[in-house]
Amino acid sequence: MPVISYREALRHAMSEEIERDPNVVLMGEEVAQFNGAYKVSEGMLAKYGPQRIVDTPISEAGFIGMGVGAAMLGLRPVMELMFFSFYTVAFDQIFNNAANIRYMSGGLINCPIVLRGPANGGTNVGATHSHTPESIAAYHPGIKVVVPSNAYDAKGLMKSAIRDNDPVMFMENTILYGETMEVPDGEYLVPLGKANILRAGTDLSIIGHGRAIQMALKAADLLKEKHNINAEVVDLRSIRPLDEETILNSVKKTNRALYVEESKPFCSVGAMVAAIISDKAFDYLDAPVKRLTSIDSPAIYSMPLEKLQLPNVDRIYQAALETLK
């Protein structure tokens, strides 16, 4: 099986869908001539031409709204936000228009748009460029939210997102773009809303999404090595729809849960998952559900400090031990 990067997996997914469906178009700042600010779309302009790979001006409210309007009329635009953080500039277009159009039209209209780009900290770009808005996005009924943590999922989820008839916010990660793994050639789909058990275990469920869950795998290795603790690691992959069944089955088996994510703690995805667990699996719990997030402040610039602000292997390892006390 070929070993490819997360970035290449995304490119393969978009390329396959562009070839499959004439209504799919990739649009965004620097996606075409510049080959993508993070090279996700590298070579796509040369291959598919300017009708399918479209550069936009720095004008997020304008071009995201334009994509929403085009989606209403049957296109399947894939809109790249150079940084997902720039969604703030297009907030009205995303959450008033894309999210609500089906509802306010009584189901007459749907909006098959994908908004994608990197949503992560850890690259010393400061608070404006480091937003992790998955819980803000998922708060809005009508929106779907996907956060792949590896190349295989990135490809399969992207293909599903493009074919989805609802608006999907697809949050990538600049630090993961270069991470490689075995990814099969050609067609496969990963459905939205299906969590993935990355590591089976019996003593503790470490649940999470995005890059943090990859760190959780390393923390799980340490727990095994140092304490003979068998942690189960569950990657949600999709925030909305949410795979409640896999979460609850895991917790019912291990009786302890730790949620890990890069977001800030207030109203985070972990907060929602903790509420669901306490609501539906309270009797199975041997300890309170613990959450491990970024330290609650805007993203700090200072390089060594940002590493400490974000979840890291040691912080996850320590949080797991506290859950097991």
């Binding site: 995201i64 929403v68 309007g69 989606a71 209403m72 007459l108």
Partner: peptide, 30 residues
């Protein structure tokens, strides 16, 4: 709304519909 009559709303936020109208034109041209 009545998409069967090419009528796409009816929008509540001042000016918020104008990017959508631009997108309708984009799709027509596309």
């Amino acid at each position: 709304f009545d998409p069967s009559r090419n009528f796409w709303g009816g929008h509540g936020i001042v000016g918020g519909q104008i990017p959508l109208g631009t997108g309708l034109a984009y799709a027509l041209k596309y």
